[in-house]
């Protein structure tokens, strides 16, 4: 049975992260990175989330609210999402949030959403800075709603969402009643660029900046982090890398195979 089109109120969880091309340097404290030369972008998986939310809104009606916990600078990322077509932005900016780990961030996001009506939350599968894969499922848990992760296709009908998710070696189809949360995987869509009229319109769209107190959260309650980075280092360099030389392609191939078998012992 084809469901009646029903408006969908959508929340997108957005994190601003260093662009992958950024040169990453370890800061003097040894447990964070230097941010002065970093180019900040929307987490690529959250771009899929924004795009999907806009497409759902276009198909069903409703609205898209983008929410982020982060520094003031993260409002740029929210503006970009608004320029793509989201309707409203919320930035939770509070020094107490900076010390939070994933569970703390998820706690803040879920408190911020507790009194907001929504049918669907879309998050990235992971943020490409911490690569944690945690905040989406944790927000769903704190809000007591089901979640489906790594989604490449979804359909909404009759108050339910049916998602195709990727697993090792294939796909699984799952269904959840709304409200629900899902996390994105590449393949879901191709995010649009913000158009010039979109950018102009975004300037007039609401972007609320809130503190933890504004969302009724006691900074102390946001929680002492349970995970803490104690040191950072660069992965070991492949110092001994070498180009295999040889008179002919045949000779190079033979030398490579010899090296893989006798030196590296991987074949």
């Amino acid at each position: 049975m084809k469901g009646r089109l029903q408006k969908v109120e959508i929340i997108v969880l957005l994190k601003q992260v260093p662009a992958t091309e950024s040169f990453v340097e370890i800061a003097d404290d040894g447990v964070s990175i230097k941010t002065d030369r970093v180019n900040w972008v929307i987490n690529p998986y959250d771009e899929f989330a924004i795009e999907e939310a806009i497409q759902i809104k276009e198909a069903h009606g409703g609205s898209v609210t983008v929410i982020s916990v982060g520094p003031e600078k993260a409002s740029e990322a929210i503006r970009t999402a608004l320029a793509m077509g989201a309707d409203k932005g919320v930035l939770i900016n509070d020094p107490a949030a900076e010390k939070c780990d994933c569970l703390g961030i998820a706690r803040i996001l879920s408190e911020a959403l507790r009194n907001v009506p929504f049918d669907l939350i879309i998050a990235g599968q992971r943020a490409v800075d911490d690569d944690n894969f945690q905040v989406g499922p944790a927000v769903a848990e704190f809000l007591s709603i089901p979640h489906i992760s790594m989604v490449i296709k979804e359909e909404i009908a009759d108050g339910k969402i049916r998602c195709h998710k990727v697993v090792e070696g294939g796909t699984v189809i799952l269904e959840a009643p709304l409200p629900a949360l899902f996390t994105t995987q590449r393949g879901l869509n191709e995010p649009r660029y913000a158009s010039l009229p979109g950018i102009m319109k975004a300037k007039r769209k609401p972007l609320d900046i809130k503190t933890l107190a504004d969302i009724g959260l006691d900074a102390a309650k946001a929680g002492k982090p349970k995970t803490k980075i104690v040191s950072m280092k660069f992965p070991p360099e492949r110092k001994d890398g070498r180009i295999i030389e040889g008179e002919s392609a045949q000779a190079k191939a033979a030398e490579l195979v010899r090296a893989l078998s006798e030196e590296a012992k991987v074949i």
Binding site: P18, T20, V24, I26, V31, I33, V128, D129, D130, D131, P225, K226, T227, K228, I229, V230, S231, M232, K233, F234, P235
Partner: peptide
């Protein structure tokens, strides 16, 4: 664990 797309290895203490 690796972070920043494998550019950094971080030691994380659990509590």
């Amino acid at each position: 664990r690796s972070m920043y797309g494998g550019k950094i290895l971080a030691d994380v203490a659990l509590d």
